[in-house]
């Protein structure tokens, strides 16, 4: 799995490609989850090219969400691929992470709240 992250004002963006599972989730945690804080409470994850996601990865997303919420932010999923969308629906997590078609829309949503 490759992951490219960048930090903007109050937002961390991550673009992930490949499988997000027990083996690759450690990188997600160090590069995204651990970076969440008062200066960067929001996370937007581009997932169009994530072909597989397992329970370890879902647990990591939830952990990131809890940290974001603690700092007044949210975790947004962008351009979610079909396999990921299916898993989110099967676990009811589709109700928990706001979803957007593009990073621009996610940024707009953050700006609207601020």
């Amino acid at each position: 799995m490759t992951i490219t992250t960048s930090k903007e004002a109050n937002l961390i963006t991550g673009r992930m490609v490949g499988r997000l599972d027990a083996h690759t989730v450690v990188r997600f945690v160090t590069e995204v989850a651990d970076a969440v804080g008062p200066d960067h409470p929001n996370v937007a994850l581009h997932m169009a090219h994530v072909e597989f996601i397992d329970s370890s990865a879902l647990a990591a997303l939830v952990m990131t969400l809890k940290r974001s919420l603690q700092h007044g932010g949210d975790v947004m999923l962008v351009a979610v691929s079909d396999p990921v969308r299916l898993i989110l629906e099967l676990t009811r997590l589709d109700e928990v992470f706001p979803r957007f078609a593009s990073l621009a829309e996610a940024r707009a949503a953050i700006a609207a709240v601020a």
Binding site: T91, R92, L93, V96
Partner: peptide
């Protein structure tokens, strides 16, 4: 039957 609630450990319905 689709689940109505989120998993344990997740804030949600």
């Amino acid at each position: 039957i689709a689940p109505t609630g989120v998993p344990f450990g997740v804030p949600g319905p």
